[in-house]
């Protein structure tokens, strides 16, 4: 299953609902283009909802890091929401759980932005 994304606005926060696989190739490119597009429109509060992301490889992990740093470098914040166990485990073993702000409740994630 390839990756699909759709974006919506909640109280000034852009929530990106992702589904499928974030892997080398199309999945990583879609995520990169989506985040760049959001930032180019001036939206700097971003939540990636990964509830339906069932697989991610090292390239996908790299793309999450890239999205995080790109957003931060533009004065914004990017948070992760609703990680599946597989993605959660990967962020744990790569120590990226300490880098990302990970939420498991959408309303709380939206409220957490400054």
């Amino acid at each position: 299953m390839t990756m699909k994304v759709s974006s919506r606005q909640v109280d000034g926060v852009t929530i990106v609902d992702c589904s499928g696989r974030i892997t080398l190739g199309e999945g990583s490119v879609i995520l990169r283009d989506t985040v760049r597009d959001i930032l180019s429109k001036g939206n700097k509060k971003i939540v990636l909802n990964l509830q339906n992301v069932n697989y991610i490889d090292s390239s996908g992990i790299g793309e999450l890091v890239s999205a995080f740093t790109t957003t931060k470098n533009q004065g914004g914040e990017l948070k992760l929401l609703n990680l599946t166990k597989k993605v959660n485990d990967l962020l744990q073993i790569t120590k990226l759980y300490t880098v990302f702000d990970v939420k498991d409740d959408e309303a709380a994630a939206v409220k957490s932005f400054k």
Binding site: S58, G62, T94, K95, T98
Partner: peptide
């Protein structure tokens, strides 16, 4: 070493680490 603090935010270099894990 992708777990080194200076490498945590690199966008690549985790493949062999994952294999070993």
């Amino acid at each position: 070493n992708p777990l080194a603090p200076e490498n945590l935010l690199k966008t690549s270099g985790r493949g062999i680490f994952l294999m070993r894990s």
